[in-house]
Every structure is written in C-alpha cells, then in structure tokens.
C-alpha cells in the first residue's frame, strides 16, 4: 500500500487561511489502511480545523467526502456535482489521488493534507515500513524476497557495505541491514551459493531515471 503521513497542522492552517468553505477529501484505499486519510482521519482533521477557526472567530465550513479511490476516473468524476460549491479542495489522498483530482478540476485549487511517503506494509497495528521503490526491474528472485533496492540504504546489489554492524544499518540503529537479512534468508534456504553470483550494473532506466512511467494495455482500452 501507499503510506502517507498527515502534514503538520500549522501548514494546513496556512493552506486554508483565505477560505471559509472547503471540501476535505479522503480515500478509502491505501490511506485508510495506513490510518492517514480515510473517513475517520478526514472527520478528525475537519473537527480540528473547525474548532481552531471557530476559536479564531473565523468559522469555516468543511464538507467531508471520501472517495472509494482517488486514482480512477470514475470515482474522481463523481465529484463533479459538488466540487463547484467549494472554494478549494484539500485532499488526504496520496500524491497520485491529489494530482488526479487536480487534473480533473483545473479551475479548482487542490492542495495536499498529507505527505506521501512510501510503498510499504503493515508490520503490526500502527507500524508501517517501506518495501518497494518501484524500480521497474524486480530482482526478488535473486535475494529470496528481500529487496536490496529498498531495504539497503545505499541500494547495493552485491553484499553489505562497511556500515553494517551487528545486523543493523549505519543510518539508524533500529533499521536492519538489508543485506544481512538477505544473507540470513539465503542461509535458511540453503541457497547461500546465490550470494556468490555477481550482479551486473543495474539498468535504472526502468526506474525514475527513465522519466515518468506509463503502462498501456491496448486490449483493455475501450
């Protein structure tokens, strides 16, 4: 899922400063699961903003609305009848959703209420961590399901660097060394010989180095 964090409250207050009637948008997908921008978080933020503005003597009307997804046109287009009633849209969806809404309603100011952070997993209730950078050329077969691009701070491909100490990465004592995880896994599976295979230089053109990516399936087009 895409994991995001809510922006600092002060920053959001600045965004809505000139406005008195706004649409606060949430999303039922990833940001709901990572407890950042679902119906509950939209209600909490709306309540906080309303109370702050009421206290300031400048009440604000906030319409809370949560789309099933913000990254598909059929859901984004469903905003059409209501979006014109509001001075601006503040979105708690991920960066994809915010951009897609802004693309559809070019006359409307659409601002982010969250910082979209990473593609990750739920380790436990309330704990999420990064797993995939979307490099476009997966090598999880060689590393038995542990991604060195994401889990190694330097995205190394041929073993750990000198900063690996006691199984931890030098960037943070709580971050496991990605390559330590890979070696441990290879040992568990009796496949340590894979560690001896030298990985060639990675072609990063399938990642962000090749510019914004696009996928087309002609057979699915209507």
């Amino acid at each position: 899922m895409i994991v995001a964090n809510r922006k600092p409250f002060e920053e959001l207050l600045e965004f809505i400063k000139p406005y008195s009637k706004i649409l606060l948008l949430g999303c039922n997908e990833c940001v709901t699961v990572c407890a950042t921008g679902g119906a509950k978080e939209v209600a909490i933020l709306a309540s906080e903003l309303k109370m702050h503005r009421e206290k300031e003597g400048r009440p604000i009307e906030i319409m809370e609305h949560v789309l099933e997804r913000n990254c598909d046109p059929e859901y984004v287009e469903s905003l059409k009848p209501m979006v014109g009633d509001y001075e601006m849209v503040m979105s708690m969806a991920c960066g994809c959703g915010i951009q897609f809404v802004a693309e559809h309603y070019r006359e409307k100011l659409v601002l982010p209420a969250v910082n979209t952070t990473f593609d990750g997993v739920t380790e436990e209730h309330g704990v999420w961590s990064e797993r995939c950078l979307g490099c476009g050329n997966c090598i999880l077969d060689k590393t038995l399901g542990i991604c060195p691009v994401t889990r190694c701070a330097k995205s190394l491909f041929n073993g750990p660097c000198g900063g690996s100490q006691g199984g931890k990465c030098e960037v943070d004592k709580d971050t496991p060394c990605g390559w330590q995880l890979i070696v441990d896994r290879l040992k568990e599976m009796n496949m340590l010989d894979k560690y001896m295979e030298i990985q060639p230089l990675k072609d990063w053109s399938t990642s962000r180095d090749g510019g914004p990516r696009r996928r087309v399936r002609e057979d699915l087009k209507i």
């Binding site: 509950k40 209600a43 909490i44 309540s47 906080e48 309303k50 109370m51």
Partner: peptide, 11 residues
C-alpha cells in the same frame, strides 16, 4: 470510545 467522539464533544 474513539478520538472523534472526544473531539465532537468539544466541537
């Protein structure tokens, strides 16, 4: 009891 219940009371 959820956070939103507490906030709504104040609101």
């Amino acid at each position: 009891v959820d956070v939103i219940h507490i906030l709504k009371a104040f609101e």
